[in-house]
């Protein structure tokens, strides 16, 4: 487990370092995510799978992902001044955008799957 945590931290560190050096506009942890994915795939091809340490650490973090949102979320109290004056427009954008994104994504997914199934005769 500890090795798994160290692995995640190391990949984040590598990601942050690469972003700092290259100035690419992508967050460091996302670069770390992509690199870890590539390394895991290479590791599996080379016959090193499974990776119980990394899997255990990742599983612990991701099953409690909601907890990690809480500290920033409580910031709503200190931001109340900003939010109060714009509450109605923010609420409209929030709800309409979420509904539109859900609907268009689900339709696109179904339509694309149908199209590619027909094309490749799955």
């Amino acid at each position: 487990m500890l090795r798994g945590i160290a692995t995640l931290l190391m990949f984040q560190l590598i990601g942050e370092s690469l972003v700092f050096l290259s100035k690419i506009p992508v967050p460091g942890p996302v670069v770390g995510l992509v690199l870890l994915f590539v390394v895991l795939q290479i590791g599996r091809r080379a016959g090193h799978a499974p990776f119980p340490q990394v899997e255990a650490a990742a599983n612990t973090l991701l099953t409690n992902l909601g907890l990690l949102f809480v500290p920033a979320g409580v910031g709503v109290v200190s931001l109340w001044g900003v939010l109060k004056s714009e509450a109605a427009p923010i609420a409209i954008v929030l709800v309409v955008s979420a509904a539109v994104t859900l609907a268009i994504t689900v339709w696109t997914f179904i339509a694309a799957r149908r199209y590619f199934d027909k094309k490749w005769g799955a």
Binding site: L8, F11, Q12, G32, L33, L36, A57, A58, L61, L62
Partner: peptide, 13 residues
């Protein structure tokens, strides 16, 4: 949150 973002690589893999 940072390590948890990196951790998303695992289910994807």
């Amino acid at each position: 949150l940072g390590p948890a973002t990196v951790a998303i690589a695992v289910p994807l893999y």
